[in-house]
Amino acid sequence: MEFIVASSVGALTAAGIYLILRLRAFSTILGLALLSYAVNVFLFASGRLAIDLPPILSPYGEASYTDPLPQALVLTAIVISFGMTAVLVMVALGAYLESDDDRIDLPDAAEDEESAGGAAQ
């Protein structure tokens, strides 16, 4: 189970990072969404994994529970990352409408990058 969670975190992180390195705003937003999943799950996992032990106190005497603190932190993190994504979407939309272009690099910088990339080939 631990491997399943860890590898999912790794895969989501890798995909997210690849996408934020793309040149278009929308890809970056997708990448950030994936990174948010990865980070949230990672934080959640810092409470270690437990099955069928939700942190809802049982009225029937002694019981064991999973770690509630990371869950509380991740809960707000999910909501905040939603807010962040929404702001980014709006900014990206605005940038596209203002400049007719949704590249994230400045124009001359992008050309430098491309020529450098071309030279490397």
């Binding site: 969670v5 975190v9 995909a15 990058e113 080939q121």
Partner: peptide
């Protein structure tokens, strides 16, 4: 837009970072 070389470079960075985070999570767990 990006050249194949650049995509490979980004891919390497992404896989290294993702692998690192995954390994970290696994060790942690």
């Amino acid at each position: 837009e990006s050249s194949a070389g650049r995509r490979i470079r980004d891919g390497v960075i992404a896989v290294a970072a993702g692998g690192g985070v995954g390994a970290l999570a696994y060790m942690f767990l």
